[in-house]
């Protein structure tokens, strides 16, 4: 029995989404093969590895996750600059924690002002995330979309309850969106179908919601993997959006990550590479060392 390498070719590809603008604009997606399968397909864009920046000084962070940002943690602009200049982040994710209605409850105007300042400080693409509160995020993200019109941010999370308003604003002001549906590939597809009635599919990134190693990581893994296979193997064009995974926030709240620096870094890096292997095209990470590790072993 002669051996012939059992290669698999897909006649379709994941949509390519462009984030940001100018020289530092970054593409994600565009592949017609499974993650890191350089031997049988084309993977034109490496997975996006974004570092997270908070708009308020973090509370209750373990010392080793705060340490890289200690000097800049109260100032989102310096924090953003440090991530780009010192840690080599090609994408940033600005989390508007201050807008949390259960916390500081900052106004949409205040939040948008911070975003405006950060976007002046760095030239890499920005992911801008609300706190997941449907109502408040809707106000905040619409304001951000307006104030930073044309900056081509990736705005999210856009949910079943607020997709119409936010996507409309993103459309008017030239931004992409993260469509979030919790842990169910069918819900991801439903939301995509609803969005695509008025929103361009090549500006949608999907988030099936993440979890950390030891805390449901395998569920997220299998959902991302099945979304990718629906898209590539079953050629479902409503499942061909790049996948987003919010890794750092999930990992650094676990007690294992808070136990030691080395264990924390690996907790995040392991969760990150697991989602990358499932098919995630954009990971949001917190520790610069987790980013370095993932990049190092997945770059050809």
């Amino acid at each position: 029995m002669a051996y012939e390498a059992p290669l698999e070719k897909y006649p379709v590809k994941i949509r390519e989404v462009i984030l940001g603008g100018g020289e530092k604009a970054r593409k994600i997606g565009g592949e017609n093969a499974l993650p890191l399968h350089f031997f049988e397909g084309s993977l034109p864009n490496p997975p996006g590895l974004a570092l997270e920046v908070l708009d308020t000084r973090p509370e209750n962070w373990a010392p080793w996750i705060l340490e890289p940002f200690e000097d800049v943690a109260s100032d989102p602009m310096s924090w953003a600059k440090k991530c780009v200049e010192e840690f080599g982040a090609e994408i940033l994710c600005l989390r508007l924690l201050s807008t949390d209605p259960a916390g500081k409850d900052a106004s949409p105007g205040e939040a948008a002002k911070t975003v405006e300042q950060v976007v002046k400080a760095v030239d890499v693409p920005l992911v801008v995330l609300g706190t997941g509160d449907e109502e408040k995020d809707s106000q905040v993200l619409i304001e951000v979309a307006r104030v930073c019109s044309g900056k081509n941010f990736l705005l999210g999370p856009v949910l079943k309850g607020n997709y119409q308003e936010i996507a409309q604003a993103a459309l008017e002001h030239g931004h992409c969106i993260v469509a979030q549906a919790s842990m169910d590939a069918n819900l991801t597809k439903e939301l995509n179908i609803a969005l695509c009635k008025f929103f361009p599919p090549e500006r949608i990134v999907v988030d099936p919601t993440s979890s950390a190693l030891g805390y449901g990581m395998e569920y997220t893994f299998s959902i991302i993997e099945s979304i990718k296979l629906f898209g590539l193997a079953d050629r479902d064009n409503m499942m061909q959006m790049p996948v987003f995974a919010d890794v750092g926030i999930e990992c650094w709240r676990t007690k294992e990550a808070k136990e030691s620096r080395d264990q924390g870094v690996l907790w995040e890096a392991t969760t990150g590479i697991t989602f990358l292997l499932a098919g995630a095209n954009l990971l949001v990470l917190r520790h610069p060392e987790a980013l370095r590790l993932i990049k190092k072993i997945t770059t050809p």
């Binding site: 294992e256 080395d262 264990q263 907790w267 697991t274 292997l277 590790l293 072993i297």
Partner: peptide, 30 residues
């Protein structure tokens, strides 16, 4: 750390025995 991460990735992708040099609790436990 790179070794540990590669080991994790290889476990996902079908490897039956993964040989590492790791004996540090913080690297092995994850």
């Amino acid at each position: 750390f790179e070794e540990a991460l590669a080991a994790a990735a290889l476990m996902i992708r079908y490897t039956g025995i993964v040989v590492t040099s790791l004996t540090e609790k913080d690297l092995v436990f994850p």
